[in-house]
């Protein structure tokens, strides 16, 4: 969370240390991809990796880490490590699904608003401005509070439908600058249809920007999902990192000094999001480099 990073505008890299930054971005991107891969493997192989069943709650509660329970147990007598491993599934599924939904919407709105312009574009952009001012995170919480039994699907839907705004903005400004490039006019002059120009000519040029923004949208979705679960209004019956923190908070884990229960889920959320941010940054750095080297020729 915090200031939404702007992923649409690769910095013109003719300044000091540009090359170094590109290399740094590339390496960091690889690190991010490696971390993400780890989490995906954990999510897929959670049943194999977990030492216990995710529903086993017959251990002594409030145990600090030990050989039997590497991350201790919670107040219900469940193994924290098992919960953490299984929780990866929820975060990744909700994050990626909501991110893809929001990105598709954002790309569509941005493309149409940027390319066609006119009153449709104007209306769409006013809508985007409007949604940007309304605190969507708060709206998300409020809606989740009102809708009974949201469930994973519901979470994906409302997060997806409330997080496309940044993508749309970024894509629109990118489409505007692409449209000013000669090849778009050239496509019109040789008689291509608007749909072909938008989806076959402009869209492939947007891929790096889409990818960089997608990564931020996914990050936002993971954090939003965790927030909803923390408030107990997401999907309380599904094992997730947010739910773990929610239970830890409501059962006063702090007063039990149960750091082993509080630290791991948050660490996982942050590290997973960090991996996505690194990937996005790497993509943008490579993109800037490619654009830069093209300008030199």
């Amino acid at each position: 969370m915090g200031v939404p990073l702007e992923a649409g505008r690769p910095v013109r890299s003719r300044d000091a240390g540009a090359a170094r930054r590109v290399r740094f971005g590339g390496t960091a991107g690889m690190v991010g991809a490696a971390i993400l891969l780890c989490f995906i493997l954990i999510a897929v192989f959670a049943p194999v990796l977990s030492p216990y069943s995710p529903h086993a709650s017959n251990f002594t509660p409030w145990q600090p880490p030990s050989a039997a329970h590497l991350l201790g147990t919670d107040d219900y007598g469940q193994d924290v490590l098992t919960q953490v491993l299984w929780g990866a599934r929820t975060s990744i599924v909700v994050g990626v699904a909501a991110g893809l939904l929001a990105s598709s919407l954002g790309v569509l709105v941005g493309l149409v608003a940027g390319y066609t312009g006119g009153w449709i574009g104007e209306v769409l952009m006013r809508l985007v401005d409007l949604l940007q001012v309304i605190p969507t995170i708060v709206l998300l919480i409020i809606i989740a509070a009102f809708v009974p039994s949201l469930g994973l699907g519901g979470e994906i839907l409302i997060i997806g439908f409330l997080s496309w705004v940044w993508m749309a903005r970024s894509i629109r400004s990118q489409v505007l600058s692409e449209s000013a490039r000669g090849y778009v006019e050239a496509s019109r002059v040789i008689g291509m249809s608007n749909a072909e120009i938008m989806f076959r000519e402009i869209l492939p040029n947007l891929l790096p920007v889409i990818l960089a923004n997608l990564v931020l949208v996914v990050t936002g979705a993971i954090l939003a999902e965790a927030s909803l679960d923390f408030l107990g209004i997401g999907s309380p019956n599904v094992i997730s990192w947010g739910t773990m923190l929610s239970l830890a908070f409501s059962t006063n884990a702090i007063l039990y000094n149960a750091w082993w229960w509080i630290a791991p889920p948050g660490f996982c959320i942050a590290t997973l999001c960090f991996a996505f941010i690194l990937i996005g940054n790497g993509v943008l750095a490579m993109y800037a480099q490619r654009r830069g080297s093209m300008a030199q020729h």
């Binding site: 960091a28 954090l223 923390f230 947010g242 908070f249 999001c273 960090f274």
Partner: peptide, 23 residues
């Protein structure tokens, strides 16, 4: 900054409470 940007607010709050106030 990249890492902090990815941290959930309420988790930082819980850690601060745990270490700053409880410990």
């Amino acid at each position: 900054s990249f890492y902090l940007h990815a941290v959930p607010y309420f988790w930082t709050a819980m850690l601060l409470l745990l270490f700053g106030a409880f410990d």
